[in-house]
Write a protein that binds this DNA or RNA. Structure first.
Lengths: 287, 287
DNA sequence: AATAAAAATCTCATATAGTGGAATTTTTAA
DNA sequence: TTAAAAATTCCACTATATGAGATTTTTATT
């Protein structure tokens, strides 16, 4: 039994409510006392009533319960991402130690394999289980989007294309869920970058996948980005510029990209600006 | 008893899991069946185990359960805001009908009073209960921030100042919670606008509250905005420009503000740009 | 320090959440 | 059509969530 009670007590006290006031309409004081002391579990219905009365959402409650750290799902992907960037295979293996989820274990193994075989060319990744999972799920939730987003770079173009379309189709109903648009847009933009092809290669891929790239831009349109989602707006325009360059409109494309970079500079987003600039340089050198 | 079971079933099916697989390690199949058919409540601990296995957060679960609409807290404030903008007193009164929360009722009454007495000058608002509540709560959560944010414009300057400082002090631990920074920054920025004073008046307020305004800018610094939070970055610079104008640096201030407006235009944030421009016009006319 | 009021805990009775197994029905797949 | 898998139903049983009222602890006030 998880000890949710004490956390609830803490929150109740912070809001200056007595047990009587909180329990009103949903529970007896005596039971609330027992629960708050960690001596009993509570039903989902009762808990929901209590949290509603306290004006605290489940996620906020769990955020406090987990010592002011975020959701398990985000936490896992963030940790993996960091460990990978730091090439910390030990950390990755540690993360796997307490893990029961099959997908998570696969993902960790993939990353460890990549880090360990970085130089050798005979790297064979087994992505089948991931494909199977992502194709079998009927509606993609937040988790599936994150899972795909953090593994797409390991997949081959055909699969990426296929799954990005799938993401669009299977994720539709979530439009208004908090972080959804961000992950979705990020998936589509990464897909486009992927399809534009390696910077040092020719433009075969752009030509081959032209229809798909346009489709992906239309998916982003479909997200109907809000005016306050300026970061995504900047990112979209930037990728459009890159695409134009690859398509031959070198001058207009470069101008658009540089414009976005200058906006980022003005807002002191130095890292972002530098990343954008570096990639632009590579693209232009390939021309 | 809320019927959470059927929603869980729906999600389980979407993910292609059998009851046996889902129940493993946490529940018996026969009970899971009973729960999923809405014939029994479930303990918070069990539910958490099930959702963890499904890789679905509580908020995502409730989002689906509530027919793909968002959190109760946000929903309330959004609805009130819309009804107020549309001067729809009937809608506001409707919102109050099913409402049990004391603060919500106060807030609704305030808005109705404002709309009904718009022309007459003898409007007397009783904000005491709100002050009492906000001062009595030890740690401000998401709800308190939203509540304050949506009522601060009705309060007098001294109170706003006091409560904005309170927001900073009492909200500290939440830095990493999802929407937190947004609401927090929005509070500080609104406070600065408030302290800069009415556009048609002189600059007494800017002078009087100079130290406070600088303090508020430092609070925003303290939030350590991420590079991807470009919307807030734009907003902060815009307000800085307005402040410079009020302080006498008309030229530099106007330049900065116009710069931000032009960025918004480039990103096709037409409404935001227009709002910013309108306010700039008023400020400059007052000079 | 004394006292009253409010808040929280404890005791015990009861309702119901949850288990396990076996038989039955429904769904799925080949 | 048929066999296997998945889900439901029924039952007997245990664990525990919850409520009512008595008791103790805390808080506030003089």
């Amino acid at each position: 039994m998880e000890q949710y009670g004490p956390t609830l007590r803490k929150i109740r006290k912070q809001k200056g409510l007595s047990m009587k006031e909180l329990a009103k309409d949903s529970l007896s004081v005596s039971f609330l006392s027992k629960f708050e002391r960690g001596e009993s579990d509570i039903s989902l219905t009762s808990m929901n009533q209590l949290l509603t009365r306290l004006n605290v959402s489940f996620d906020e409650f769990l955020f406090i319960h987990n010592d002011y750290s975020n959701q398990a799902i985000d936490l896992f992907f963030t940790r993996v991402h960091h460990a990978y960037l730091e090439q910390d295979t030990v950390k990755l293996e540690q993360l796997g130690a307490n893990e029961k989820d099959q997908n998570h274990l696969i993902l960790l193994e993939l990353y460890v394999n990549i880090l360990k075989n970085e130089d050798s060319n005979d790297l064979q990744l087994n992505l089948e289980p991931l494909y199977d999972y992502l194709f079998s799920v009927e509606v993609w939730g937040y988790y599936e989007l994150k899972l795909y987003n953090s593994t797409m770079l390991l997949m081959n173009p055909e699969m990426v294309l296929n799954l990005s379309h799938t993401a669009f189709k299977k994720g539709k109903r979530y439009h208004s869920f908090r972080d959804y648009k961000n992950v979705m847009a990020s998936i589509f933009l990464s897909t486009i970058i992927y399809l534009i092809g390696p910077v040092n290669k020719g433009d075969e891929m752009v030509t081959k996948y032209e229809a798909d790239i346009l489709k992906l831009f239309s998916y982003i349109e479909d997200l109907k980005l809000e005016e306050h989602e300026t970061h995504l707006r900047i990112h979209v325009r930037y990728i459009k510029g890159i695409y134009m360059i690859k398509k031959g409109q070198v001058e207009e494309g470069t101008e658009l990209v540089n414009h976005m970079i200058s906006i980022l500079r003005e807002l002191q987003c130095e890292n972002n600006a530098a990343d954008f600039e570096r990639y632009l340089g590579l693209i232009l050198k390939g021309k």
